[in-house]
């Protein structure tokens, strides 16, 4: 049980690796240094794609959770996918914050600024960290999936509220540059290419990792089932004959009652 066929996954894995190497070459040497920020700006080729993947991952989690909750499309596939995607989302959000911090030190002069988008991202990180904690709580597969799907949607609904309230609170971050239609951003051709290629390479990476994580989840579920079966088998083999077990239970119950 995997999302992609094994051969497709393998090809995708190699393609991702090549794309990341190409991205590294372009990011480090291909693209010219920024006029103002010099080499520190090169972190953007990782920071922006990582942020994009984080949003994509949380979007996938929300959609998958919604599909699980919708009775007609309910299937364990969506639960696994929601969990796998949220894990990737938290990881990429963490990376985004980390790289943003590394970039902020030379450019802004501080590791951290109380700026709207930074704070929103940090809250996002903790929102889904809580979701992952909830996912680790054991329970029946159905019950756990239901809890997690509802929790994912509760968290997702909160994102715009957090975003707007934090934006009102303070704004210092660079406005969205590439997507701003008024500005018609002029980024140097190679720089723009590297940025977009970074987004492309990270999207491949996301799909590949999602498939792998999904596969791992299937294996884990299979392992749990197999361990349970084995335990039952051992139990049956260990007891000489079933009636004796019953007699033992009765004796224990009687002993308990006497106490």
């Amino acid at each position: 049980m995997t999302l992609l066929k094994p051969t497709v996954a393998r090809v995708l894995g190699w393609t991702t690796l090549v794309a990341l190497i190409v991205l590294a070459l372009f990011g480090l040497w291909g693209a010219p240094a920024d006029a103002v920020q010099s080499d520190a700006q090169r972190l953007m080729y990782l920071h922006v794609p990582a942020a994009w993947i984080a949003y994509l991952a949380f979007g996938v989690t929300a959609i998958a959770s919604g599909l699980w909750l919708w009775p007609r499309t309910r299937s364990p596939v969506w639960d696994r996918m929601a969990g796998a995607s949220a894990e990737l989302g938290v990881m990429f959000t963490g990376l985004t914050l980390l790289m943003g911090s590394l970039w902020g030190r030379p450019v802004w002069g501080v590791w951290w600024a109380w700026d709207a988008r930074l704070v929103t991202t940090a809250v996002l990180f903790f929102l889904y960290l809580g979701y992952l904690a909830l996912r680790r709580v054991p329970g029946t597969a159905e019950g756990r999936a239901k809890r997690c799907a509802i929790a994912a949607l509760i968290a997702f609904v909160d994102v715009p509220i957090v975003h707007f309230s934090v934006t009102w609170w303070r704004t210092l971050h660079q406005e969205a540059t590439v997507f701003d239609p008024e500005l018609k951003a002029h980024i140097h051709g190679v720089m723009a290419f590297t940025l977009w290629f970074g987004v492309f390479a990270f999207t491949l990476l996301f799909v590949y990792l999602l498939d792998r994580r999904y596969h791992l989840e299937c294996l884990q579920e299979g392992l749990e089932d197999r361990e349970l079966e084995q335990a039952i088998k051992d139990r049956v083999r260990g007891s000489v004959s079933p009636p004796k077990v019953e007699a033992k239970v009765e004796a224990t119950v009687e002993a308990g009652a006497e106490r």
């Binding site: 809250v123 903790f126 809580g130 809890r147 909160d158 609170w169």
Partner: peptide, 26 residues
């Protein structure tokens, strides 16, 4: 949500506090 999972004491803060951060702010 936490009661249904049996880990309520430690789970509620980590789930609730990020969600209510806009309330604190507002």
């Amino acid at each position: 949500l936490a009661a249904s999972s049996g880990a309520r004491e430690t789970l509620v803060p980590v789930l609730l506090l990020p969600v209510v951060s806009p309330v604190l702010l507002g």
